[in-house]
Design a binder for these strands. Structure first.
Length: 351
DNA sequence: CCCGTCACGGTTGAG
DNA sequence: CACTCAACCGTGACG
């Protein structure tokens, strides 16, 4: 059973044991690091354990992704990507082929041996679930190896992060940033948008996306586990929230990260999105005053409301994994950098 | 003091 | 449908 509230770590930050940090915080960790802020200061400022900061940054440098890995589930035992690929090939070559024939062929072609060959029923299920729609790539195809990312998830990550990066700071700072991973090619952002009905088009943010520049692409897990099967309902809700929040984006102005709008949405999944309480807060509290407890406070009117109503807490149900935050305005970043000189001053000022 | 690493107690979800 | 279990999580402590 999942706790309704998170726990508080030594630094006063709120976390939920066993669950990933909100994407917004992960993103912020990377952003701060790219601004040259030391991990230990990031740790203090965001009240995330340094081990965690270290891990997230290490992963980011390695994979280019700020996202947590795929939790749970099990790897396919017999229906490995290779097997699926072969089955698909057989089926394409001979659409009328029977499952038992496929089984025989897998054995004959040496794809499987008698120990790991899928049962006829498994093959049927594969045919039904993974190959029934031949236009749809097998989600497992690339597994966790940084091979080719599924366009779908790339799209979805784009939808989140492109949109959420602090535009001005990212654009200005990123290009020569050292921590930035070398990204394969220059994969255009909208290359991954499937159609003209993409979110960016609808929201009219393409221009923004293009301005985003490097950080944006850095934040997109182009080469990492993005191809890992992603929970569809998450993306549904994300996209939903984007649609839903589109007017708010226009309404709220520049400093409002879209992720915030997602929270607005997720904050009231069962009722009305609690927009009003949200909108006013971030601009008032750039960083938590000393008395406040959690960095999450920054993201919502109160930690309790954040924790209590946040969708990601729900076990089993359709989770809304993206979390939002008010990404620091350029101003805030400047102040951070200004205090950068003394290593303690940041923590002091942030706390 | 900083930071990489890892045991730990936890959650998740495909099989 | 309940269960299993290997994946991942962040914290906290150690070196």
């Amino acid at each position: 059973m999942e706790p309704a509230f998170g726990e508080v770590n030594q630094l006063g930050g709120v976390f939920v044991n066993g669950r990933p940090l909100p994407n917004a915080i992960r993103l912020r960790i990377v952003e701060l690091a790219q601004l040259g802020i030391r991990p230990c200061d990031i740790s203090r400022q965001l009240r995330v354990s340094h081990g965690c900061v270290s891990k997230i940054l290490a992963r980011y440098n390695e994979t280019g992704s700020i996202l947590p890995g795929a939790i749970g589930g099990s790897k396919p035992r017999v229906t490995t990507p290779t097997v699926v690929k072969h089955i698909r090939a057989y089926k394409q070559r001979d659409p009328g082929i029977f499952a038992w024939e496929i089984r025989d062929r897998l054995l004959a072609d040496g794809v499987c041996d008698k120990y790991n060959v899928p049962s006829v029923s498994s093959i049927s299920r594969i045919l039904r679930n993974k190959i029934g729609n031949l236009s749809q790539q097998s989600q497992y195809e690339s597994g966790k190896t940084p091979a080719h990312p599924s366009p779908q998830s790339a799209l979805q990550y784009n939808a989140i992060y492109s949109y959420s990066s602090p535009i001005s700071t990212a654009g200005a700072k990123m290009p020569t940033s050292p921590g930035l991973p070398a990204l394969p090619g220059h994969v255009g952002i909208h290359r991954t948008w499937p159609s003209s009905h993409s979110v960016s088009d609808i929201l009219g943010i393409r221009a923004i996306i293009e301005q985003q520049g490097k950080l944006l692409e850095g934040a997109i897990p182009i080469s990492d586990s993005s191809s890992y099967p992603t929970k569809v309902e998450e993306w549904n809700s994300i996209n939903r929230s984007h649609f839903q929040s589109s007017n708010q984006a226009a309404m709220n102005g520049l400093d409002k990260s879209p992720l915030e709008q997602e929270v607005k949405y997720t904050q009231g999944p069962n009722g009305l999105p609690t927009v009003s309480s949200f909108v006013s807060v971030p601009s008032m509290t750039p960083y938590p005053p000393p008395t406040q407890v959690s960095p999450y406070m920054t993201y919502s009117a109160a930690a309790s409301s954040y924790m209590a109503t946040h969708g990601w807490q729900h076990a089993g149900g359709s989770t809304l994994p993206t979390h939002s935050c008010d990404l620091p305005t350029p101003l805030q970043f400047k102040s951070i950098q200004a205090t950068r000189e003394g290593s303690h001053s940041i923590a002091a000022s942030a706390l």
